[in-house]
Write a protein that binds this DNA or RNA. Structure first.
Length: 121
DNA sequence: ATAATGACATGTT
DNA sequence: TAACATGCCATTA
């Protein structure tokens, strides 16, 4: 279990009901500024126990598109879970992420680094 | 050690 | 709008 994975799990588990974050955002908040792809990789490899208590469906790409691939889970499943939380998703699996994007407060960011602060603020 | 792969992001054609 | 290119970096082959 790497620090990065722990942080990703912490961040994702904090996304409120009905809100979403992009992979890049999650990476930033986990103090891995350019780890977007690794976030996706981690979510893809989560075991059952981990997915059970983690709202992985609230993580989408930065354009508001469901971009799941080669996973146990399929795009329609994620779409259904998001719609169940009130999001309106088009049939091409896109939606207006700016209506639902979750912006964490600085207190919720983990292990802030100088590099991170330079980039974000 | 080197190369390919990916639930990504951003900019340019 | 869509396709392409480049950067990214852990994991896998």
């Amino acid at each position: 279990m790497t620090k990065f994975k722990e942080n990703v799990i912490k961040i994702v588990s904090k996304i409120p009901y009905g809100k979403v974050m992009s992979y890049g955002q999650v990476a930033l908040c986990a103090s891995f500024p350019r780890g977007a792809r690794q976030v996706g990789w981690i979510l893809n490899k989560l075991n059952y126990e981990e997915t059970k208590n983690l709202p992985w469906w609230r993580v989408v790409n930065n354009e508001g598109r469901i971009s799941i691939k080669n996973s146990e889970y399929l795009p329609p499943e994620q779409k259904q879970k998001l719609e169940a939380e009130g999001l309106k998703i088009k049939k091409d699996l896109t939606f207006d992420i700016n209506n639902y994007r979750y912006i964490p407060t600085p207190e919720e960011y983990l292990e802030l680094t100088d590099d991170f602060l330079d980039e974000k603020f």
